[in-house]
Amino acid sequence: MDSLDKFCKILRNRSEENKKSFDVLFRNQLYGNCFSILRQELDSMIRVIYLLNISNLNQRGSFIQKTLSGEKWSFINHNNKKQNVTDKNMVDLADNLNGWTQSVYKFGCAFIHLSNFHDYLTEDPFKSLPDLEKDAIIHQMKNYHSANLNRGSSLNEIIVHLPFVMEKITSNFECEIKSLEEKRIKST
């Protein structure tokens, strides 16, 4: 099995585990952890999107090999210095391509890192978001999940759509993995 095959197998295994975990968590009304799982799935997807935008297949292969070796992604920049690829770099690229990634990723991060969002049973974290972040989430939820949301909506109105969000992310992610296997190159 070559590096690309192994990498794609890892991506699919993680995604399958995320789907199973999400289902158990949602059934048990553990919604904060559902957001965390969605964020993990999105994390994998933005990495694949980033890889698909690297036209140099050798550099792409190097990043894949670094993942398999447990190393951080880095490259030699135009100043001949080592530069790490950060989550922010990948999220920004995916956001430029999709227009929704940053808000969803940031919202999910708040459920991964200890924050006031963990008090969602008492205080609605969606209501505390800045209007621009709400608008991005509302736009995404309306366009892709037929959710009837507005700035005054509650987290509970979003929660009912989470299984559809998970399904959409995982199906889009599978398409991205197939593109990676086919060595396609996307451009920004």
Score class of each variant (00 low, 15 high):
residue 19 K to G: 01
residue 19 K to I: 15
residue 20 K to G: 02
residue 20 K to A: 15
residue 21 S to D: 14
residue 21 S to Y: 10
residue 21 S to N: 14
residue 21 S to A: 14
residue 22 F to V: 10
residue 22 F to R: 04
residue 22 F to D: 07
residue 23 D to G: 02
residue 24 V to S: 04
residue 25 L to V: 08
residue 26 F to L: 06
residue 27 R to L: 12
residue 28 N to L: 12
residue 28 N to F: 02
residue 29 Q to S: 13
residue 29 Q to E: 15
residue 29 Q to F: 01
residue 32 G to V: 10
residue 32 G to D: 05
residue 32 G to T: 05
residue 33 N to M: 04
residue 33 N to S: 13
residue 33 N to L: 09
residue 34 C to W: 04
residue 36 S to M: 06
residue 36 S to Y: 00
residue 37 I to Q: 00
residue 38 L to T: 01
residue 38 L to P: 00
residue 41 E to H: 01
residue 41 E to G: 12
residue 42 L to Q: 02
residue 44 S to A: 04
residue 44 S to D: 15
residue 46 I to L: 10
residue 46 I to Y: 00
residue 47 R to G: 15
residue 49 I to Q: 03
residue 49 I to D: 05
residue 49 I to H: 01
residue 50 Y to V: 06
residue 51 L to Q: 03
residue 52 L to H: 07
residue 52 L to V: 08
residue 53 N to W: 08
residue 53 N to G: 08
residue 54 I to N: 05
residue 54 I to Y: 04
residue 54 I to H: 03
residue 54 I to E: 11
residue 54 I to W: 06
residue 56 N to R: 05
residue 57 L to G: 00
residue 57 L to S: 11
residue 59 Q to H: 05
residue 60 R to H: 10
residue 60 R to W: 14
residue 62 S to E: 14
residue 64 I to Q: 12
residue 64 I to C: 08
residue 64 I to M: 13
residue 65 Q to W: 00
residue 65 Q to Y: 01
residue 65 Q to L: 13
residue 66 K to M: 14
residue 66 K to F: 14
residue 68 L to W: 15
residue 69 S to H: 10
residue 69 S to K: 13
residue 69 S to A: 12
residue 70 G to W: 06
residue 71 E to D: 12
residue 73 W to E: 15
residue 75 F to A: 05
residue 75 F to I: 13
residue 75 F to K: 09
residue 75 F to H: 11
residue 75 F to S: 07
residue 76 I to E: 11
residue 76 I to K: 09
residue 76 I to A: 04
residue 77 N to L: 10
residue 77 N to A: 05
residue 77 N to D: 15
residue 78 H to V: 07
residue 78 H to N: 11
residue 78 H to R: 06
residue 82 K to S: 12
residue 82 K to L: 14
residue 82 K to R: 07
residue 84 N to C: 02
residue 85 V to Q: 05
residue 85 V to G: 03
residue 86 T to L: 12
residue 86 T to A: 01
residue 87 D to N: 08
residue 87 D to W: 13
residue 89 N to R: 10
residue 91 V to K: 06
residue 91 V to W: 07
residue 93 L to V: 07
residue 94 A to R: 02
residue 94 A to H: 02
residue 95 D to E: 11
residue 96 N to V: 02
residue 97 L to V: 07
residue 98 N to R: 08
residue 99 G to T: 04
residue 100 W to Q: 07
residue 101 T to P: 02
residue 102 Q to G: 07
residue 103 S to N: 09
residue 103 S to M: 03
residue 103 S to P: 03
residue 104 V to A: 11
residue 105 Y to K: 05
residue 105 Y to I: 10
residue 105 Y to G: 04
residue 107 F to K: 07
residue 110 A to T: 06
residue 110 A to C: 10
residue 110 A to E: 15
residue 110 A to S: 14
residue 110 A to W: 00
residue 111 F to D: 11
residue 111 F to N: 10
residue 112 I to P: 10
residue 113 H to A: 14
residue 113 H to M: 14
residue 114 L to H: 11
residue 116 N to I: 06
residue 118 H to I: 03
residue 118 H to S: 09
residue 119 D to Y: 13
residue 119 D to M: 06
residue 119 D to L: 05
residue 119 D to G: 03
residue 120 Y to K: 03
